[in-house]
């Protein structure tokens, strides 16, 4: 049973972690994230890096779609902008990676704002389709602007650099990705403690009333687009550093859908939801791979079915969560927590 919940100051009441227990848990989580690479197998390390990148991008999409209510089918395109920016900078300059990632995020944010411009006039699904059009254009640019993007062959990167240190393996990449992911999550969490986050949610819930209550719609919609594509751009940049190659096919439309699926499964409009969704959806394919490897000795055809089965599983997850658990894994998590808060009493 959770007790001792009374606060003596508003600051204590508005803190991110309102009890010592929560602070201790968070400390432990950070500690285990720090120690993880020293004990993890190369495979787990690789997975952790993937999860980190997915968490950043999913959080970005969640800000736009989950919190501001603007559906985007362009997330992969924005990641592509980030990825190509980092790749180009790595080939033509020797900038340290934080600068390159910042540039990736900013360029992506700028393009995001341009694409968000129609959002004042068009809403809902029309907007989703406008973002789809935008991602078609971006894909076209990636393919056709060969002098910069390397065309269909794409670009190969050099390893990320900082103060003469190169990030050439997963172990080092982990220490680049994970702190950034934690930092960007905290920043996203902070946004929703302030007026800006409240304005986003207000626009999602009732845009017209929000405007009458003093929120300039276009400015905040663009801000949401910019923020979301900044996250996507940084994630795309990390993606480029991680795989050290980017091609137009690195950022397909299915990737945009993957991220939409992640925030639906995790929980739209919940930072925790975005995180859980990103972790879950990154691990599902890996789980399937494990399953396939296990079955192959008995049924040699299994690997052929791996990739289509993945599509089916993704689809079933999306549909299933929407129908049966529309608030996603975040709601499941809350339910578990509530159980322990009340334990040993029952609800």
């Amino acid at each position: 049973m959770r007790i001792g919940d009374a606060k003596q100051s508003y600051a204590a009441d508005e803190a991110l972690w309102t009890s010592t227990t929560q602070q201790v848990w968070f400390g432990l989580l950070l500690l285990s994230l720090l120690l993880f690479p020293f004990f993890a197998s190369p495979y787990l390390l690789y997975l952790a890096c993937l999860v980190g990148i997915a968490v950043i991008s999913a959080t970005g999409l969640n800000i736009l779609t989950g919190f501001t209510g603007l559906i985007s089918l362009g997330q992969a395109g924005f990641m592509g902008v980030g990825g190509y920016t980092v790749a180009w900078l790595s080939l033509h300059t020797s900038l340290p990676f934080p600068i390159a990632l910042l540039a990736a995020g900013l360029l992506s944010a700028a393009i995001g704002m341009v694409i968000g411009l129609p959002s004042l006039r068009i809403k809902g699904l029309y907007l989703a389709i406008a973002t789809l059009a935008a991602s078609v254009f971006l894909h076209f640019v990636f393919v056709e602007w060969a002098s910069v993007t390397g065309g269909m062959a794409g670009l190969s990167l050099r390893s990320a650099q900082l103060f003469g240190l190169t990030f050439h393996n997963d172990f080092r990449m982990y220490f680049m990705i994970m702190p950034l992911a934690v930092l960007m999550l905290l920043a996203a969490r902070n946004i929703f403690r302030t007026r800006i986050g409240r304005a986003f949610i207000a626009i999602r819930d009732r845009d017209i009333s929000a405007e009458i209550l003093g929120i300039p719609l276009l400015r905040y919609k663009l801000l949401s687009f910019a923020l979301s594509s900044f996250y996507a751009g940084v994630a795309g940049g990390l993606f480029a550093y991680f795989y050290r190659v980017v091609t137009p096919e690195s950022f397909p439309l299915s990737m945009s859908i993957f991220y939409l699926a992640a925030i639906i499964v995790g929980g739209m409009g919940s930072i925790l939801g975005g995180v859980l969704g990103a972790i879950f959806m990154t691990l599902v394919p890996e789980g399937l791979k494990l399953l396939t490897t296990a079955i192959t000795p008995i049924y040699p055809q299994a690997p052929v079915f791996m990739s289509p089965l993945l599509g089916v599983v993704f689809g079933v997850l999306i549909v299933g969560f929407l129908i049966f658990e529309p608030n996603g894994l975040a709601e499941v998590w809350r339910r578990i927590r509530r159980f322990f808060h009340l334990w040993p009493f029952r609800t």
Binding site: R195, I196, G214
Partner: peptide, 14 residues
Amino acid sequence: LGAHVHTKTGLLGA
């Protein structure tokens, strides 16, 4: 939210 027009925090601050 009602106090939106009377507060100033910008994006970076937030």
